[in-house]
Structures are given as structure tokens and as C-alpha cells.
Design a protein around this nucleic acid. Structure first.
Lengths: 228, 228
DNA sequence: GGCCCGATTTGACGTCGATCAAACCGGGCC
DNA sequence: GGCCCGGTTTGATCGACGTCAAATCGGGCC
């Protein structure tokens, strides 16, 4: 694959304009933001940035998944967030400090848009729809990170998995089927589990009517899952 | 104690103006914000708001400590954040939803200022120093909540306690002494531990030169703590 | 359709921290 | 200074999850 690194073309601009972050921007702000976007493709496992590097840009994900994580002194890793298509990340540094506070790594082939923080700071200064979008995104991330803390502290592995399945479940009751959009090891990291623990959690959910075959998960009875 | 609930007087306005959130506001925005502040005193253990209630206001803490927490179906509680004097909380709902997502409870006698969300939304619309302050506060809370997730996932109880002590340690090396500003059970909740586990963590730090007497903690050698 | 390699599962084990109960302490009060 | 009570510590036990190693699976590729 050739190394792509270019300004956003029409298709990419359209894709970006539909994200939660940009949907509510004024036409003028949106255009200026997109004019500054740089598109890059990266292969699986590529590093996007490292903890401690100067934070010059934040990113929007067009396709693929990205892992935000930190590494302990003894080399163990803990995921902070998994980003999917349409997500933006490292936006907490627009007004939150000048170095990245975690590593960002492509979990698979990804395509992403890069935005200069300083440019966006100036844009936010001039256009309130930009600051509103930033505030909404920050609030959203803060709330879901709080959820993450509570989940870790309150729920066991099977409960966290059941929770996860319920949040992606289209229907409210009866049987359902879900296809994981990524590897199970990535899901394990999201839930703060070792891959083995995720596997065991799935197998303990068998008695509740959950069947796993590869990336496809069958739920016998959604109501029953809520009881876990 | 008589139930106080009044508009901010001169002393309280001065106190609020010094908080991280309000320090950088334009004089006009600051004045308008303070004009809308309502001061309340509450006794220890009082509920400030409950999860699920309509989120009409956010708060700034003048004195005392406040616990933000959620309760699981079986009644166990998990703290999300402990707020101290000068902190603001529930600001994530200014642009993040219309019901509170957790409970807020006074951990001891507190005095706090209440701000109407809708008023502040309008203020932010008109004055960019307000939205900047909100973004900075949200970023800050997001980053520290991410730290919390990582700490929970990567560190053992003694490591979390050592971390905590180091963040409040005035000096970088040699001996030091710290007085906890609140009960140990509150600290335990902050760190995601049962009180018993905190106690055991302290006693396991004795071999690293940490001595505990009531709320006073003596650190023999700060450098040594960093090695934990 | 079969092969192959990396991802996942399973098994065995150790450690950490939650829980319950009982002993202890310290700080506010008289 | 002594008393009391809520907060803290200690002890014993247990369940949950991490880790390492080995077996197995599944999905992409020819």
C-alpha cells in the first residue's frame, strides 16, 4: 500500500462532516476546519503518537480502530479508550496541556484526519459553534470515562461483558445477534480484562444463553442478560 | 446551625473568583456568573443531588468535601470523584445531558455555590472566556479521570497510596509529613479501595518508611516511595 | 477445500483485594 | 483526665482475576 498523506478530498470531507463532533458546526467553521485537515493511512500496530511527545494535533478517525493506552514501569499496558470510525481523540489537550498523556496505536489498518491544535484553538475563539462542539465532545468523553471507572469498580468480568453486549444490542428483548467489529483481545483491553478473562467471562455467560462463534455472538434472551 | 441559602456575599464572591474555573473569566462574565450564584450549607452526609434527577444546576465547592458516586443494583457504592474546596462538579452536564449521572453527597459539613446550567450556557454563548474556562475544566477532569482508570488497572493498592502521597508531597526528596484533609475511609473510596485495604496498604508501606498516626503521615524518604 | 499462523480457549496456579467479625484507637466531650 | 463512639486496624477466609503454558480454533489464502 502506498503511503497516503494528503489534504482531505471531497469524500473524506463528507465523511468528516457527518461525525458527532462536526455535525453542528457552522458552515464557515466546518470549511475552515476541513481545510486544515491532513489525511493519513497507517498499518496495524503503527504508533500514532507517544506519551510525553509535544501535543501539536488531535485526530478524527475515518476508518479502523485506535487504542489509547498507557504503559506501566514494568511494561504492562492498560487501555484508556478504544476509538472507532467517527471518533475524535486527544481533543482533551486543546485546553488541557501541551504533551500527550498516553500512547495512541492503530489496532488495525486505519485512516485518520489530523488537525492542528493551535488552529482549532483560534477557530474556537472566533466561532462559538466550535467551542460548543468541543465542550459537547469533552463532556461525552468525560461521562463515558466515569462510566468506565464505575464499571471497573463495581462489576465483575461477566457483568462488564453483559453490559457491553447490551449497549450494542439493537433490540430490547428476545434473542439477538452481534458481530464484534474488532478482535476479542481489543475488547478485553476495553473492558480492563486480560484476554483469558474475557474468554472465561463469555463461557460463564453460556448458562445465560450467550453463544460465541468467532466474532459472532448470539444472545438467547436479552432480558436475561440484564439480570446478570 | 441555621439553614443558610442566600446569594453570594462579598467574601464568597472573592473566594469563588479565585477558583481555577473562574480565575480567567472576563470581569463582566465573572460578575454575571456570581450574580446568579446561590450559596448553601449542608451537614455531613446530606445528599446534594441523585442520579437520574433533572440536571438543572452545577456546583462550586467553597468548603468541605463532596463525594460523587454511583450505586450498583446490589447496593454497593463506587466513588467517581472526591471534590474539595475550589472544585466545581457536574459541569459535564452543561453540554452533556439533562439528568445527573451519579449521586453527590456531602462528606462533611460543606458550603457550596449553585449555578443554573441554562444561565451559564447562555453566558458561554456570549463570552468566549466562559467557554474557554469550561473547556479547560472539562479537559482537566477528563485527564484526571483517565489517570484514575489507568491507576486502577495498572497499580496495586500500595502503589496507589504511594502515588497519592507523592502527589501531595511538597518536597521531591528526603523526609516529609502530610496531614490528610479528610477521613481515611474517604481516601479509600477515592483510590477505589475498601477501608480495610487502604489500612493494609499503609501498613505494607511501613517497610518503605511510611508512618501513620491518625491523619498525619510521615514519609521517611520520598525517593524510596517512588520506587514502589 | 485444505493449510497455516496468529488469535483464542482451556487448565493450573498464585496473588490481590473484598468481606465479615472482632479488637483497638483517637478525638471530642464533659 | 476519663468516657464513649465512630472510625480504623487486624485476622481469617474466599472469590475474582492475572499469568504462564499448552491445546485448539478460525479465517484468510492458495
Amino acid at each position: 500500500m502506498l503511503d497516503r498523506n494528503h489534504r482531505a478530498n471531497q469524500r473524506e470531507r463528507g465523511q468528516l462532516a457527518k461525525t458527532a463532533f462536526m455535525r453542528a458546526l457552522s458552515p464557515n467553521a466546518l470549511a475552515r476546519l476541513l481545510d486544515g485537515a491532513h489525511i493519513t493511512s497507517l498499518p496495524a500496530r503503527a504508533t500514532i503518537f507517544r506519551e510525553g511527545e509535544p501535543a501539536l494535533a488531535f485526530y478524527a478517525l475515518l476508518s479502523g480502530y485506535v487504542r489509547l493506552y498507557r504503559v506501566s514501569r514494568d511494561g504492562r499496558q492498560a487501555d484508556i479508550r478504544i476509538c472507532g470510525p467517527g471518533d475524535i481523540f486527544a481533543e482533551c489537550l486543546i485546553y488541557g496541556g501541551d504533551t500527550y498523556r498516553f500512547h495512541a496505536q492503530a489496532a488495525e489498518n486505519v485512516s485518520l484526519a489530523r488537525f492542528d491544535m493551535q488552529d482549532v484553538r483560534e477557530l474556537a475563539e472566533q466561532d462559538p459553534t466550535v467551542s460548543k462542539a468541543i465542550m459537547a465532545t469533552l463532556s461525552d468523553h468525560l461521562l463515558s470515562t466515569m462510566d468506565c471507572v464505575v464499571n471497573d469498580r463495581l462489576h465483575t468480568a461477566p457483568q462488564r461483558v453483559a453490559d457491553y453486549l447490551l449497549t450494542r444490542c439493537p433490540s430490547d428483548n428476545g434473542p439477538a445477534s452481534i458481530r464484534l467489529p474488532y478482535q476479542k483481545s481489543l475488547l478485553a483491553g476495553m473492558l480492563g480484562l486480560a484476554p483469558e478473562a474475557l474468554s472465561r467471562a463469555f463461557s460463564s455467560l453460556r448458562r445465560t444463553g450467550v453463544t460465541v462463534r468467532g466474532r459472532v455472538i448470539q444472545i438467547g434472551d436479552v432480558e436475561a442478560l440484564k439480570e446478570i
